[in-house]
Every structure is written in C-alpha cells, then in structure tokens.
Design a protein around this nucleic acid. Structure first.
Lengths: 132, 132
DNA sequence: AATATATACGACATTATTAATCGTATATAG
DNA sequence: CTATATACGATTAATAATGTCGTATATATT
C-alpha cells in the first residue's frame, strides 16, 4: 500500500533525464525507454499525457520528441500526481462517497485528517526537487 | 495509488470501536463486522494479526472476543502500518533492490527522499490520534 | 459430557487494479 | 516516397488486493 505507480515512476525518470539536457533539446520516447529499460509504448503514453497537461511539448515526425515546457519548480508533487493519476485519496470516500456504510463509518473524519496531512506534504514539494 | 488497504481500514474501524468501550470489555469480530458491514472472516484475520502483534488481546470461547492491549498513544502510524502491511516504501526498491535497472535508474535517491518524508510524517502521528 | 460459539489459520477463489501490448492514424524530415 | 516519430483507443496480461472455505482449537453454558 501507499505506492506510486510505474506511470508516475516513468514520468519522473523521463523528466529527470530531460532536465540533464539543454532546454530546447528533444528526447524521444525510444531513447528513454532503451536507456532505462522501460516499455516504450507505455512510456510514450505517459509522455503524451504530460504533453496534454502542458508539462512537456511534443514535436512530431522523425527527429521529433519531447522537451520540458513547464516550470518544474512551479508544479507541486501533489498537482503532478493528480494530473497523472487523478485525485489523491488514501480512502475512496475522501472524494467520492457512494460507500453504503458511510453513515456507520467511524473513521472517515480521522482518515481525512491523515489524508490532509499527506496532501499537504506533497503540496509543499515541487517537481523540481525530485528531478533536479 | 497511495491508498491504504481495507485491512488497515478495518483495523482502524475496529480499534476505534473498541476504544469507545470500557477497557476490559470484549468485542467479537461478529459484532464489528455486523455493525460496519465488513466481511467477518476477513476482519477476524486482521484482529488475529493485531493480537499476534500485541496490539489486542484475544479471549477464546463463547463470550470471547478482543480487547485493546497496547497503549495506542505509544504506537506510531508508521509502525502500525508496517506491522499490518510490511515495510512502507513508495517504490519497491526502497527496501529490496533486485531491480535490474538499479544502476541506470536516475530517480532512486530523489524518490527515497520523498519516501523518507512520508515515513517521517507517519512516524509522528500516533494510533491514538486516529482512533480517539 | 454434549453443544454452541468464539478465536486461529492455512489454502483457495475471486475481483480489481496496474501494467503492457496491439493496431491504426497522423505528422514530417530527408 | 519512405522511414521514424508522436497520438491514442482497445485489448490483453500480470499482479495485488479482497474475500471465502474448511478445519482445528478453546471454553462457557446446559
């Protein structure tokens, strides 16, 4: 439990890889996939998603690839995680609450407190700190 | 991602339920399962595990059940989570590292930093805070 | 002593989630 | 024109979480 997904992991690897290059240099999904042993198609999808989220810029065609578009020190880890994986809740009922037992549940409030702490922690860390 | 398991959730519900009673009063798995709509056998296993971990005391036979044994304000959430679910790592390589790519991986150190923050956060919260 | 009801627990089955692949379309440099 | 890159929905495979089954043991009650 409390694990990040490979998607997030791959995204971080890719960002860090690109950050070690010139800002306008392009990196292909293939290059990263080969270098770190990541399934290329899966990585490509994640990069495409980051492009849709304006974290990366994508350039098509041969000699195309991706480059970092956003200011990584302006994106919190919380926002990054939620862009890629959706709302960050340790229990499903943190956001959507169609749990039948919600009336009987005695730990909803305490768990939400923990969850707020966790979200707050990730809100205070930036992508830059992880990928620099 | 970053979710707690039902096992932990059920354990917290059970602890909080027992804490609302007299300290030496017994509570059966059945009682809790019925009241909160939890599968009884699954809950029972979790209670048994907590008994093995000396968080609860178990009393067998009819009119048996469980009662809280440990001082909940002396058990951190980190220890509690790790008792129930094992080591707390956002990535598998935090503890065991048979990842083939470990040499190539460029984010191991940064992720460990995040993970340390998370573990530290849970180390500073006690079970008591959640179940009181 | 017999019975009913509780915990104890390994093995198995089911379900949900995550991870990976497939197939096809589009863009563009050479 | 061709090779190589991104784009992306659909599907399958793998893994992990969740739940069930069967059986054993303890013990209060009758």
């Amino acid at each position: 439990m409390l694990k990040i997904t490979r998607k997030v992991e791959y995204a971080l690897i890719a960002l860090r890889h690109m950050q070690s290059k010139d800002v306008d240099e392009l990196t292909s999904a293939k290059e990263i996939a080969n270098q770190y042993g990541i399934p290329q198609q899966l990585l490509a999808k994640t990069l495409q998603q980051m492009a849709r989220d304006n974290i990366l810029e994508a350039v098509q065609g041969p000699a195309g690839g991706y480059r970092i578009l956003a200011k990584l020190d302006r994106i919190s880890l919380k926002d990054f995680f939620e862009k890629l994986e959706g709302p960050l809740g340790m229990m499903d009922c943190y956001f959507d609450s169609d749990c039948i037992q919600i009336g009987a549940c005695n730990i909803r409030t305490p768990i939400q407190r923990i969850n707020d702490n966790m979200r707050n922690m990730f809100a205070q860390m930036t992508l830059q700190e992880v990928t620099q």
